[in-house]
């Protein structure tokens, strides 16, 4: 198995405030990694470092075997951030237009071809939103919107999906369905990195967990994580997150 992302002794600070300190971990092809930690623990920062959105202060990151600065196969990554949906609430853009963006890194300045449109149609079908393709994205429910962004990642034929709290504001039923879909995609060989604040639902789906709070507290399979004390250490004494029931 080859490494999709390797992070070696990476640190990053916002001014004086360290956000990530001395983290090393490696994500193998086909992994479904859950990245967890309390609020402000540096999860999003670490993900940004992995994707090259931020440069580490020290340490090194490689993506698909390339040093992060030299990596230029943008179409291999599908990224859905918390902010992805912001613009959609006001900007007039259809589901099909959003999904078609997944092809942009492939075609560059050339016009989209028939095959590009076919790939978009397939992606829409995979996440079951073909009937919504011509809707404005602000007319969709939270769950439908998230599936649109996954379809965009699929249309880019990404090998790696990076999802930063993709189900904020999505109802429980759509969330279950969404995670079921991620399981399917992972079974097809797509590597997934997922940030999710809900540890219950996360540990049900992912096969590896990286638990961080500025530093790495645990990186291993889900079972060993649940048996370890990483969670209580990372969250401090007042965690209790894992026991509560979800709406």
């Amino acid at each position: 198995m080859s490494s999709v992302v390797t992070v070696e002794d990476v640190s990053f600070a916002y001014g004086e405030k360290a956000a990530v300190e001395g983290i090393s971990l490696s994500i193998e092809s086909g992994d479904f990694l859950g990245l967890i930690g309390p609020n402000g623990s540096g999860k999003t920062t670490l993900l940004h470092l992995m994707l090259g959105l931020k440069r580490p202060d020290s340490g090194s990151v490689t993506l698909f075997g390339d040093p992060i600065d030299e990596f230029d196969d943008g179409e291999r990554i599908g990224y859905v951030s918390q902010r992805s949906t912001d613009r959609g609430s006001t900007m007039p853009v259809t589901v099909r237009e959003v999904v078609t963006m997944g092809r942009f890194a492939h075609v560059g300045r050339s016009p989209l071809g028939t095959d590009d449109h076919e790939i978009v149609d397939e992606a829409l079908e995979t996440v079951e939103i073909t009937d919504l393709a011509d809707r404005r994205i602000n007319q969709l429910s939270g769950g439908q919107r998230q599936r649109t962004f996954i379809a965009r990642a699929l249309a880019s034929e990404a090998d790696l999906l990076a999802l930063d709290e993709p189900t904020v504001g999505v109802d429980a039923e759509s969330r279950e369905r969404f995670y079921g879909m991620l399981d399917d995609l992972n079974r097809q060989g797509i590597t997934i990195i997922l940030i999710e604040h809900d540890i219950d639902i996360l540990t049900k789906h992912v096969d590896t967990v990286a638990c961080i709070n500025r530093e790495l507290y645990h990186h291993g399979d889900t079972v060993s994580f649940l048996e370890s004390e990483a969670l209580s250490k990372a969250y401090g004494a007042a965690h209790g997150v894992i026991e509560h029931d979800h709406p």
Binding site: I77, Y79, R83
Partner: peptide
Amino acid sequence: ITFDEQAARVARL
């Protein structure tokens, strides 16, 4: 870029 600047950066635009 207008719609999703971060995703555009990740796609190496």
